[in-house]
């Protein structure tokens, strides 16, 4: 109806500007800045490593369990942060929604890109550790970017669904936090998958997060990390979540400005 034709390039610039400024703002007034985003997963890592590897000896027998755990936590932190922050991004940027015409999806994507920047920095730290401790990498590493992309698409798809629903159902942030708690233990983040009977593996791998994180581990330093041929379903679910996210978001976004 209205002609607001802007080039894709302009939307990209807008997205980048919002994402970079959010990233700046996140660490603006703190002395340690980005380091906080690293300290949180590292602290979680240390606690879980002590409990599960030293005290309970669940991961103890496995080589490079520490990398297994660290990579899992970094991926998990990205997923949890993205969905929680992006879910509330439309409401938090209400001024933008109510006073200017911008494609609303840009706001959610920008929020997810902010988390992605932190994720890349955390991954860089992970690989620095890998090099320092000389953990052997293997050629499967070439697939690593593919899994990052899958993780991003899955997180973004969920964020689109959550942010569209959050506008009219504000309880969703609390509900989602509880779901995240459950997901954290359903996904093999702390424990090696082989402590779970094999007949349940198919069910576990329906969760794209499980498949992505296991594949990432397999592609980097933990060749023993179980992956599954069943994971093709995880790819399909990722795609489905993303398409559904775009669909729901597009249907609901014209009414955001009335509901915020």
């Amino acid at each position: 109806m209205l002609k607001h034709k802007q080039s894709l390039r302009h939307y990209w610039e807008l997205m980048r500007e919002l994402a970079v400024n959010d990233f700046k703002l996140k660490y603006n007034s703190s002395a340690l800045g980005y380091v906080w985003s690293l300290l949180r997963p590292l602290a979680l890592f240390l606690v879980l490593y002590l409990v599960f590897s030293v005290f309970l000896r669940i991961g103890g027998g496995q080589t490079n369990y520490q990398f297994y755990l660290l990579l899992g936590i970094i991926c998990w932190t990205f997923f949890a942060d993205t969905t929680l922050v992006a879910m509330q991004s439309i409401v938090n940027k209400g001024g933008l929604v109510k006073k200017v015409y911008v494609p609303k999806m840009i706001i959610v994507v920008a929020a997810s890109l902010t988390s992605l920047m932190t994720f890349f920095l955390n991954l860089a730290v992970f690989f620095i550790f890998v090099f320092i401790f000389r953990a052997p990498l293997n050629w499967h590493l070439i697939f690593f970017p593919l899994y990052i992309l899958e993780l991003y698409i899955f997180s973004l798809g969920l964020s689109l669904i959550l942010s569209a629903l959050y506008v009219s159902l504000r309880d969703l942030s609390h509900i989602w936090e509880i779901i995240l708690q459950v997901l954290f233990y359903v996904t093999p983040i702390i424990y090696p998958l082989n402590i779970i009977p094999e007949k349940y593996h198919q069910i576990i791998f329906l969760n794209p997060l499980a498949q992505i994180i296991q594949s990432m581990r397999f592609a980097s330093v933990n060749q023993w990390a179980t992956t599954s041929s069943f994971s093709v379903y995880a790819f399909l679910i990722t795609g489905l979540v993303f398409v559904l996210g775009v669909y729901i978001f597009r249907r609901r976004s014209p009414y955001f400005s009335e509901k915020i």
Binding site: N28, K98, K99, V100, Y101, Y255
Partner: peptide, 30 residues
């Protein structure tokens, strides 16, 4: 401006329209 959808009726516009209604939208004090 295209921020709200009308219940009925149309707006047609020839030309490029400014997308904003207020000054300083998106200003962040930090």
């Amino acid at each position: 401006a295209g921020i709200l959808l009308p219940t009925s009726g149309q707006v047609s516009i020839d030309g490029k329209i400014s997308p904003f209604l207020e000054l300083g939208v998106g200003f962040n004090v930090d």
